[in-house]
Write a protein that binds this DNA or RNA. Structure first.
Lengths: 289, 289
DNA sequence: GTTCCGCATGAATCGATAG
DNA sequence: ACTATCGATTCATGCGGAA
């Protein structure tokens, strides 16, 4: 009889009253034990198909969808109705073609009941170098947003970005016509009341995120930079909410969640990464004290 | 009996020995008359799916794939085996979700025999403004590359880009460690020998293209900016090759082809656009004389 | 001639209102 | 209920006129 002990570590930040669970095990098994509608945000970068085969258990591209669908089904169950699921993924090239497992996955997740709300682009400033005769360097990845229902929590103000130049120059000297509503001269749609822009220095971002990868010297092959989960955690949760990463890796998602005063749960199947994540998370918790 | 006269205009640039055909009609009908394996590159931006029927031949999202597949089948036939097909497209949101017609199209085109070689991202710096409770502004579009076979013509040197500022500043003062191969400090794969960049001023681009839309205030409101077809024409054809745009619109693709000394063929179903295209193309031809 | 500044205009999307 | 139309929101850009 094969009894597997599940190892679980519950960390706690006294100051912020935030807890961070780290669980060693296969995420499908672990997820089944979680309560329905208990998670506010899922952010994860699952092992890519057949890549990093010496670090993560590589899954063959042709079998990727079958492998992942049972997991997304559990994720659908544990996510709150107002929550979001952000999936960082990119198809690799197989036999000279982009493989279709990502778009197959989207279609099948919709059959499970997920809504495919949006696709953000992560444009990597410093992408992997190289040269091939028939393609350029791949410098972007998909950030697929899925939801359970059309209405979900979104805190757009938390991720506003500095505005372009035009506003600064324009708002210096407001003319008289600018102070009142001005629909007459503009035919279509752009009814403007420029005066309300005064003092505003930030604009809403778009669905293209330009962020550099954290290449530097890390022992692990972690791909995404902290800014990435940070952006989505700020956008889709508020303080005290719970963030889940079913493929925790070295702990990035939990670390960021803690630094933003969100509760977190991370699941990791590899003992090495699990240990590393605990170490890194503890470091972060001690930092906040 | 409904006899439809097909109007065709053959333009010719004496100096460059380049011809540009512009054809009025439904592209499916016209394409059927073209020879097999006669086109080096297809670049087009078809009418996007639209529910409103009064706009440019609006096709309902749910019927978009069925409408487009017969056309892609003809495009497959007329393209040379070494040629490429660049499709500029982006799915709309329908009922709060991204519609699946684009990814359905990819899957169905592969069944026709197309290879889905690559997906470039057109990142639009100046996207349409707006604010909504559940999404940000959409600032990117897909540029799907399809091919008939794994080996195709690609002239990468033609689209090399100036090296970013990072290189210039970095190369000013090369440290001792930079002068030799330095794999140790950087984790995976970024084996670098920075000294070999000295004196080099151009680098290969990536699969993310950052270009602003050519909106407004231009005499001919081009759908996509000239840089876009120009980039792909330089990348996938050489002088004297033939470029096809089955949805010519105001003539942008042909104009760019002419300016780059490529032969071109454009098909347009709307008389207004056809006339406009001819006018614009003539202007371009006269410019080169 | 330069530089500066004002302005119209989008391959958009949501929610409310009307038929 | 279900669909068609309308109003509201937003910001980078290039042109043309002004300084």
């Amino acid at each position: 009889m094969n009894v597997q002990t599940i190892k679980k570590t519950n960390l706690f930040s006294q100051t912020a009253k935030i807890k961070s669970d780290v669980i060693l095990g296969d995420c499908f098994d672990i997820l089944k034990q979680l309560e329905d509608n208990s998670i506010d945000l899922i952010v994860t970068s699952p092992p890519y198909a057949d890549q990093r085969k010496d670090t993560y258990g590589g899954v063959h591209p042709d079998k990727y969808v079958d492998w992942f669908l049972p997991i997304t089904n559990e994720l659908l169950r544990v996510l709150k109705p107002t929550g979001s699921f952000i999936l960082n993924i990119k198809e690799k090239t197989v036999d000279g073609e982009r493989h279709t497992y990502v778009i197959d996955l989207i279609l099948n997740m919709r059959k499970q009941g997920w809504l495919w709300t949006e696709e953000f682009i992560w444009s990597k400033k410093n992408c992997f170098p190289g040269k091939w005769p028939n393609r350029f360097r791949d410098s972007w990845e998909r950030l697929l947003q899925f939801n359970k229902q059309k209405k979900f929590n979104m805190y757009q103000e938390a991720v506003m970005v500095p505005m372009g130049d035009w506003a600064k120059t324009r708002l210096k000297n407001l003319s008289a016509t600018d102070m009142k509503r001005d629909n007459s001269r503009v035919g279509s749609g752009f009814g403007k009341n420029v005066s309300k822009w005064v003092g505003r220095e930030k604009a809403y971002p778009t669905n293209v995120l330009a962020m550099a990868t954290e290449s530097s010297n890390k022992q692990h092959s972690a791909v995404f930079p902290k800014e990435l989960p940070a952006w989505f955690i700020k956008l889709f949760t508020k303080e005290g909410d719970t963030v889940l990463d079913p493929f925790l890796g070295s702990g990035t998602t939990s670390i960021v969640a803690i630094s933003l005063d969100r509760n977190s749960m991370g699941i990791e199947i590899k003992k090495d990464y699990y240990d590393l994540a605990i170490k890194n998370i503890n470091q972060e918790i001690n930092k906040t004290i």
